[in-house]
Each structure stands twice: as structure tokens, then as C-alpha cells.
Amino acid sequence: MNSSDAPLDGLTVIERTQSVAGAYAGRLLSALGANTVLVEPPEGHRLRRQPPMLAENQSSLFAYLAAGKRSVSLDLRDPADQTHLTDLVCDADIYIDDFSSTERGHTTAPSTFRIEHPQLIYVSVRPYGMTGPKADWDGEEVTILHSTGEGYLLPNGLAYERHPNRAPIKIFGHFAEMQAGIAAVLGTLASLVSGVGQVIDVAIQDAVVALAAFGLQRFGDGSIEHRSARSFKYGGVLECADGYVELLTLEDRQWHGLVTLMGGPEWAADPALADGVGRGHHGAEINDRLRSWARTLKAADLVKAAQELNVPAAKYATPFEVLRDPHEVARGLFQQAFVPGFGDIDIVSAPFQIDGVVPRLNGGPPELPIRQAAIPADTSARGGLR
């Protein structure tokens, strides 16, 4: 896909962020073809220093989130640089901001920008939203995730069985913030369709709560979910001889496929296991059988045989295996880009295709720019594709 074929080709995004959520929103808009310009303070974006590090001032997280973006350095404590930012926004279609009202200041407040740029789409991504009593509260991934109730349900399944006394934990990585970035992009796309400039107010907390539909439904039924009971009746994570797989059989045909996969053991013919309700009542017994059986097999062999019988199963792959997996290679999920100070690296292009075509990265992450007042016309200093 050439940039001219991308849906947002010709649109400019000015991104002034400090969080994963805001940066991910800019990253996805860039993948859709927008010219995304990152406004950094003189010392550089805070995520440049977020470990794990690839090189000095080059975080692997930043490399991913900033891939394909351009960058300018402005000190917004300086009135002249405030004016420069306003000039940049004059030519922009979308402005992304994740600062509190105190940090943001009057010059970049939504009310100011909306008066001066009525067609601008102003996107705010904050832990608890831009308005309300918690608008200026800060929040890291772990605190936001737990404020949604999701952390209360972790660990569960096999992890809870093995570590029942472990304190509540969080999902690995930046799950909550990336969900908010997606929500911000969906709001932005809806605004673009409407053709009217708008203010989009995304609360990271709300974005994660929206995913907890099942837990909220159970609460409406009078049940409160807990990690001790949040697991599949049988199946789920199974340990193999060389790793782990996830196996789930929700339909009768999938159960019968699993029985065939296991060689038709006698215990599976018990009339008590004839339907899903009966199997649910005997979930612990079935799991004992499944786990004993799975430990004798290699994960890849189990998954291959399961898929041939239409039994839903997938292997928990290592990062290296993900990069080299034939499925990911066929879809073009990873592309090589150049990271300044480090070299070539495989980076996820986009978590989607457009009309069956994988979006192409416009480059790797930008180098830390010198303090400047305009977007550099020469893009050769940016990380390039290889």
C-alpha cells in the first residue's frame, strides 16, 4: 500500500503526548496514512527513556509507538514556541493531547483551539477523562487497570490454581492504555466521517470498563466475578512437554473432535459428559484428564492435530516464534525499520489490513530533534525502512 492509497493520506496529526495511550492513537492514525507530527520537549518524549532500552535514549516501546512519525522539539514554556505550536495546528486536521488542564495551560486548551480552529478534531486521552472530579488525576497502567475492576479478576484459571495466594496482578504490557488509544482513533474516524470539528474526550478507565461486558452482565444478574471462579469449566491453558497451549471446546462438535484427538478414551464416553451442561459439572475431572494427556505431547504437534479436527487450540509462542510464524509472515504483520543508534528491527506495521493490504510503515522512530520551530522538510534523518 502506497501512502497515496491510505485512507487518511493528506491529513495532518499534531501529537503532544506523554502516555502510551496518546502515542498509540497517533501511531494508528499514522498507519492509516496520516502525517503524524510528534511535539517533543527539549529533553525528548518521556517514553524515549522507558525500558527496555535498545540504545541510549532509544526505548523499544518508543521505537514501536513512534515508528513512521516525524518530530519537532518545542519548549512550550517559551511564548515563541507556543506560537510555533499554534502555527502547526493551523495546518492540522487532528490534535492529540494527554496532559492535564494544569500541565496543558491555556494556550493549548480545547476551548482555545476550538475557537481558533473550529474544524479541528481535538482528541484528549486521560486516565479518568478530561472533565469531572478526577480529570487531573494521574494514573499509571497498573492503577488504571485496577480501577476498572479487571485487576480484581487476575490471575485466574491455571494461574490461580497454581498461585491462589498471589496478590492481584495486571495484564502484561500496556493493555489499558492501548485500548484507550484504539477508542480515541475510533472517535476520531467517526468525527472525520461527520465532517465537523469536535472534541473527543477519552478516559482510559472507561475504555477498559467497556471491555468488561461479561463481568458487568454477571453483576446485573446478582453475581460478582472473582478470580477464583473465573475460568473455563474445562480446557483453557494446558501445559505440554515443551510449552503451553490454550484449548477451548464450546460446541458439541468441538468436544467430539477433542475426544477423537485424544484417541477416544473410555472415560469420555460416560453419559454424564454427553452435553455441555454435564461436562461443565465435571470440569475439574475433565481437566485432570486433559492435563495428564497434554503433558505427553509437544505443543506444536497438539495444535496441528487439533486444528485438523476443528478443535480450537493455539500455542503460547515465544517472541522469536511470533516473528517467524508462517501466519504472521504471510500477513506481513512485521516490517523491518531502522532505529537510530541501534539498527534494523522488526516492528509491527499495523493490527489491521485495508482491503486485504498491509499498511506500510513510513519509517522507524524519529531521532531526537534539535529545538526547532517547523516541521523539517528533509525527512532523511528519520528512521528509514529497510
Rank of each mutant, 00 (worst) to 15 (best):
P7W: 02
D9P: 00
T12K: 01
V13N: 03
I14M: 00
R16Q: 09
G22T: 02
G22M: 04
R27V: 09
A34Y: 10
N35C: 03
N35M: 03
N35Q: 08
P41K: 15
R48K: 10
R49C: 10
Q50D: 06
M53K: 15
S59C: 00
G68N: 11
K69D: 01
D75K: 10
D75Y: 14
H84W: 09
I96L: 14
H106A: 11
H106L: 11
T112S: 12
L120D: 09
Y122T: 12
R126M: 02
P133C: 06
G139H: 01
E141W: 06
V142I: 09
V142Q: 07
T143D: 03
L145M: 11
L145F: 04
G151L: 01
Y152V: 04
P155T: 08
N156V: 00
A159I: 09
A159C: 02
E161I: 05
E161G: 00
H163G: 01
H163K: 04
A167Y: 11
A167E: 15
P168T: 00
I171N: 08
H174S: 10
H174I: 02
A180V: 10
G187A: 12
G187L: 11
T188S: 05
S191F: 06
L192Q: 08
G195A: 05
D201F: 05
Q205D: 06
A207I: 15
V208M: 00
V209P: 09
A210M: 09
L211C: 14
A213W: 07
A213F: 10
G222V: 03
S223Q: 13
S223R: 10
I224T: 13
I224R: 15
H226I: 06
F232P: 07
V237K: 08
L238E: 02
D242K: 11
T249D: 04
W255K: 08
W255S: 00
G257V: 04
G264T: 02
W267T: 10
A274Y: 01
D275R: 05
G276Y: 00
R279S: 01
A284Y: 08
I286G: 00
N287Q: 11
D288T: 15
T296P: 05
K304L: 13
A305G: 00
E308W: 01
E308Y: 04
L309G: 05
P319D: 09
V322T: 04
L323E: 11
R324E: 06
Q336L: 05
S349W: 08
Q353G: 11
Q353S: 13
G356P: 03
V357G: 07
V357N: 09
V358G: 04
L361T: 10
N362W: 11
L368D: 02
P369K: 13
T379C: 11
A381R: 15
